[in-house]
Amino acid sequence: MSDRLGDYHGAVGWIEIKQADGSWNQRPATRIYVGAGEGSFQSIPVTVNREAADVRLVSCLQDGASGSPWNCNRKIISGS
């Protein structure tokens, strides 16, 4: 996750793995927050256990580590 803009807002993101029952499981269990300013970056390695699963990337703006995500964008990467 990176914060590419000097707009005084932090960035938060997470990935979700589509389960066999159609629900989405957030991985890692916590979100990755980056609030150190323009050009800051943080990563956490994640293992996807379910082969051929769709993965949904979620990125949002967030003010402060305990703030609420807003202005979110989502992108699904097909596992098939």
Rank of each mutant, 00 (worst) to 15 (best):
V12T: 15
C60R: 01
S68H: 04
S2Y: 03
Q19K: 09
I44N: 04
G67Y: 10
D7I: 00
Y33I: 02
V12D: 00
P45T: 07
L61N: 11
I17K: 06
V48L: 12
N25H: 10
Y8Q: 13
R56C: 12
K75C: 12
P45A: 06
R4D: 11
D63C: 07
D54W: 09
W14A: 01
S78P: 03
G10S: 08
I44H: 03
S80C: 08
I32P: 00
N71C: 12
A36M: 01
E38D: 08
L57W: 05
G39M: 08
A11G: 10
A29G: 10
A52M: 14
G79W: 01
W14C: 04
V46D: 14
W70H: 15
S23E: 07
G22N: 05
C60E: 06
L61W: 13
A53T: 05
G10Y: 05
V58W: 14
W14K: 02
M1H: 10
G79T: 08
D54M: 15
Q42V: 00
S59H: 04
R74I: 14
E51F: 08
W14R: 01
C60K: 04
N49P: 07
S2I: 00
W24C: 02
D3K: 05
D54C: 11
R31F: 00
G67I: 02
G10P: 06
A29N: 13
P45S: 05
G13R: 01
W14V: 00
A20M: 07
V34Q: 03
I15Q: 08
S2G: 14
A53V: 08
V12Y: 01
V34N: 02
I15G: 10
I76C: 09
N25D: 10
N71L: 10
I77A: 14
A29Q: 13
P69T: 03
G67V: 01
L5D: 12
K75N: 13
S43C: 02
L57F: 15
S66P: 01
D21E: 02
